[in-house]
C-alpha cells in the first residue's frame, strides 16, 4: 500500500474510532466501579461519565461491609465466590495441563493415541449445553455438585482439547536431537521427558497454562448449572448483586466485574504471541 498522507490519516482515524469503541464499554465499567450510587444512572438527573465523587464503597460493599449509601447489606460477600473461581480455574488448569501435556507428548513422540486430535476437537465443537444433563446426573451421583473440585474436574475436561493441541504443536516444534542425545547417555525415556523435555518446554507450558486458565476463569454456563450456593463462582454470584429495594446494584457489579476482568486481560496480553496458536488449535503459529 502506498504510504500517502491521505492513507495514513485514514488509517489512524479508523484505528482510533475502533479503539474508542473497544475501550468505551470497558472504561464505563471502570468508572462505574468507583461511582457512588447517585451517579449510577441518568434517572436521577444527568449521566456522569467519570465519577464526580470517586469512592471505594462498591469494593467495600461486595466484601461484606455495609455502606451508608446502600441501605442493604449483602447476605454473603464476594470473597468466597472469588475463592471458588480461583480454586476451580487453577485446579481445572492443572488437570487439563497434566493430562494434555502427557498425551501430547505420547502422540508427538510415540505416536500413541492417534484418535485424540479429532476426538478432542469434536469435544470442543459440542455446545456444553448439549451434554449437561448426564453431567449433572453424574456429578450429583458422585457428590461433586456445588463443590470447587467438581467444577475443577469438568473445567479440566472442557479445556483439555486446548491444552493438548497447544502442547502437541510445541512438542512437534521442539528439535528431538537433544532428547536423543540424553537417550544415548542412557537416560530412560520417561526420565528424559521429566528432566530434559519439560524443563526445556517451560515457556510453552506457561503460555499454555495461562491460556487454559483464561478459558476456565471465563466460564459461566457450567458453574451456573453445577453450583448452587456454597461454591458459586464470580459470574454466577454477580447475578445476586441486586435487591428489591435498590434494583440492580450497578456499582457493586462493576466493581466485581473489574476484579474478574483484570486477570485474564493481563494474562492474555502476556501470552499475546501464542494467542493465535491457542485459538486455532495450533493450526496457525505466529
Amino acid at each position: 500500500m502506498q504510504r500517502t498522507l491521505l492513507f495514513e490519516t485514514f488509517r489512524f482515524s479508523i484505528i482510533f474510532l475502533i479503539i474508542a469503541l473497544t475501550l468505551v464499554p470497558t472504561l464505563w465499567m471502570v468508572s462505574m466501579a468507583f461511582k457512588p450510587i447517585q451517579e449510577w444512572s441518568a434517572s436521577g438527573g444527568d449521566l456522569t461519565w467519570w465519577p464526580k465523587n470517586p469512592t471505594l464503597d462498591n469494593f467495600r460493599f461486595i466484601f461484606g461491609e455495609s455502606s451508608s449509601e446502600l441501605i442493604v447489606a449483602l447476605e454473603r460477600g464476594a470473597g468466597r465466590p472469588i475463592l471458588a473461581s480461583l480454586l476451580s480455574a487453577t485446579f481445572g488448569t492443572l488437570i487439563a495441563m497434566v493430562a494434555g501435556t502427557t498425551a501430547a507428548y505420547g502422540l508427538s513422540r510415540f505416536n500413541s493415541g492417534r484418535n485424540l486430535p479429532l476426538a478432542l476437537i469434536q469435544l470442543r465443537l459440542f455446545p456444553p449445553m448439549a451434554v449437561m444433563i448426564p453431567v449433572m446426573i453424574m456429578w450429583a451421583f458422585l457428590g461433586l455438585t456445588d463443590t470447587w473440585w467438581g467444577l475443577a474436574l469438568i473445567y479440566g475436561i472442557v479445556t483439555l482439547p486446548f491444552a493438548f493441541w497447544l502442547m502437541k504443536t510445541f512438542f512437534d516444534d521442539m528439535p528431538r536431537e537433544i532428547e536423543d542425545a540424553a537417550l544415548v547417555e542412557g537416560c530412560s525415556r520417561f526420565r528424559v521427558f521429566l528432566k530434559i523435555t519439560l524443563p526445556m518446554m517451560r515457556p510453552a507450558l506457561a503460555s499454555s497454562a495461562l491460556f487454559v486458565f483464561i478459558l476456565n476463569w471465563s466460564d459461566y454456563l457450567i458453574a451456573l448449572l453445577l453450583t448452587t450456593r456454597d461454591w458459586v463462582t464470580i459470574p454466577v454470584y454477580m447475578a445476586s448483586l441486586s435487591s428489591s429495594m435498590t434494583g440492580q446494584l450497578y456499582g457493586a457489579k462493576a466493581a466485581l466485574g473489574l476484579i474478574a476482568a483484570i486477570p485474564p486481560v493481563v494474562m492474555g496480553i502476556a501470552i499475546q504471541k501464542h494467542l493465535v496458536r491457542g485459538l486455532t488449535f495450533g493450526a496457525l503459529k505466529e
Partner: peptide, 22 residues
C-alpha cells in the same frame, strides 16, 4: 494499539454481559 484491540476478547463473557446490560 494491537494489544488494546485484543482486550475485549479477554474480558470474561459474563462480565461483558453485565457491561452491556448497563
Amino acid at each position: 494499539l494491537y494489544s488494546v484491540l485484543l482486550v475485549p476478547m479477554m474480558v470474561v463473557p459474563a462480565v461483558a454481559g453485565y457491561m452491556f446490560y448497563m
